Simulated assay, not measured.
Amino acid sequence: MSEPSADVSATVEYTMDKWRMDRLPWAMWACVAGLAIALHAESRAQSGAVLAAVYLALLGLAFAAYALTTLIGRSGLPLLLELLIGVLVLIVVSGLIGFISVLVGGPNGRSSYVGVMRGLYWSHLVNPSLNVFGWMLLYLGFGWILFSAYRHLYADRAVVSMSAAGIRFHRPWLKGLFIPWQEVRGVGHLVVPGISGVPFVSPYAAAVTVGRDFHERHIAPKRSFFAPPGAEAMFQPKGEMMQVVLNSADMTVKPEDFLGPAEARWKAFRDQPGSPSQHCGTIVYGRWSIDGSRWQAVRFLAPLVGMVVVLVYR
């Protein structure tokens, strides 16, 4: 997508849509593999669909506990308080896992439910049949397909947007961050210290430079406790300044597609007080579309063919 360089009043948005849609074929292959396993693997009279849902719930609970303990470890709390909170999290998670296990298997090894739950036993949670993992792949793959398709049709807010007023960030852990062009001191590739002490210019990251005082007053307070691991790499010092990285791995957008619009707007509006009122449309980067290439067609048609083969030779 080419941006008209003269139209700097247009808003430029950067989304995760292409990143999500590029992973949709892998989700389709997960559905193909899951369906093949669910249809052909031994079931041992187990309700694979129900057990798969239970396993995914337990895995989600375990991951949530891991994420919470990781955040606590990065919070800077005293070691004793951090240890007590970690033990409390372990007790709560263990209790929930035990409750779910007993709810499914029953305290005496038998299910307390009827219908689909009647065939479940405590031992099934410990030694499930292979078709359970097929159902898990189906759930995960189909869930990603639905989520990606929904977000493609009903787009969420752009991760980064640039207007005549400045740059806005819309990340869950960095809400409400706005950098006016008047506070930007430079636009270019990220500069990091090299091994030999000589600064290294990274060709893979686009960044804007702001004053250290602006960073301390307007950026640092907005950095949430729930920032994911590696989020600190978005902010890199550069002498007395601070660099804010614009692109990230979850946006399939080249650094040059950030630098061009950013530099054009910075030069046009850095000396203008306040935000200009005119607005001339929106330009979107990172939006997935059908490009008509053979590779794109193969990526999406191949798993559909695989699904038909699995259904025909079940």
Rank of each mutant, 00 (worst) to 15 (best):
R44I: 13
A10K: 05
A302I: 02
D213F: 15
G73R: 10
L138K: 04
S75M: 14
F235A: 06
H218D: 00
A268Q: 10
S47H: 13
R20D: 03
F214D: 05
Q236L: 13
E256G: 03
L83K: 10
N108M: 14
E256Q: 04
M162R: 05
P273I: 04
V114A: 14
M307Y: 10
Y113M: 15
Q296D: 05
G48I: 00
L81K: 04
G166Q: 05
L130A: 14
E256T: 02
G260D: 08
I167T: 01
N108Q: 15
R23K: 02
G119T: 03
Y285P: 03
L77H: 03
V116D: 11
R118P: 08
H279T: 14
Q272F: 13
S161Y: 11
L311K: 03
E183P: 06
A262W: 09
R185Q: 12
A38E: 08
F226N: 01
A262K: 07
F200T: 15
A52N: 02
P203W: 09
I195P: 11
A302G: 05
P237E: 01
Y313P: 05
D17G: 00
I219Q: 00
V198P: 15
L177S: 00
L140F: 10
R217M: 10
A45V: 15
A227E: 09
G134R: 07
F258C: 00
I72D: 05
P276I: 12
Y139R: 02
H40W: 14
K222N: 00
D17N: 10
P25C: 04
G281P: 05
A64D: 08
Y154Q: 11
V12F: 06
A62H: 11
G274T: 07
A249T: 07
W144Q: 06
E3V: 14
P276N: 07
V191P: 03
L80C: 01
M162L: 08
K267R: 15
W173Q: 07
I37W: 05
D22M: 04
A49F: 10
N247D: 03
M21T: 01
G260C: 11
M241K: 14
E42T: 15
A231L: 08
A41C: 07
L84W: 12
P203Y: 02
H124E: 07
Q243E: 08
L130E: 08
V253T: 02
D156R: 13
H170P: 01
L80I: 12
V187E: 06
E42W: 13
E82Q: 14
G60Q: 03
A262E: 09
A249G: 06
W266N: 00
F235R: 02
V102D: 07
D291F: 00
T15E: 00
G60H: 08
D257T: 02
Y121G: 12
G73K: 09
R20P: 04
Y154E: 08
V54E: 06
A220E: 11
I283D: 06
A67N: 14
G292S: 04
D213A: 14
W135F: 02
H170A: 10
V87N: 04
L120F: 12
D291H: 01
R294V: 11
G239R: 01
V308E: 07
H215W: 15
W122S: 11
S9I: 13
F133C: 06
N108T: 14
A65H: 12
V87D: 09
G211Q: 08
